[in-house]
């Protein structure tokens, strides 16, 4: 089953800790986003494989943008 990693708040992508095809664990800090000069980790919703990453470091994202897709 596919799950989306959504941006919980608007900000700038600081760091991607995942790569396409790589494994990711639930509650792992998958992506770090910067908002209000604070780095906030975004967690994977499940254990699985990263199918697709839709952003790159430095991108500006809005709330609820799909950042990546993880297959359980």
């Amino acid at each position: 089953m596919k799950h989306e990693i959504l941006a919980p708040l608007a900000g700038k992508i600081m760091q991607l800790n995942i790569e396409t095809g790589g494994k990711v664990e639930e509650d792992e800090e998958a992506i770090i986003i910067e908002a209000m000069k604070m780095e906030t980790p975004i967690y994977s919703p499940c254990n699985g494989t990263v199918k697709e990453i839709k952003v790159k470091e430095g991108d500006t994202v809005e709330e609820d943008d799909v950042l990546a897709i993880v297959e359980e």
């Binding site: 919980p8 708040l9 608007a10 908002a35 209000m36 604070m38 906030t40 967690y43 709330e63």
Partner: peptide, 18 residues
């Protein structure tokens, strides 16, 4: 930021910043 951090200490997927 402090509000966000104190909230995240209890539930790390609670994004209170905005």
């Amino acid at each position: 930021r402090v509000v966000h951090k104190v909230g995240a200490q209890e539930d790390k997927k609670n994004y209170l910043l905005m």
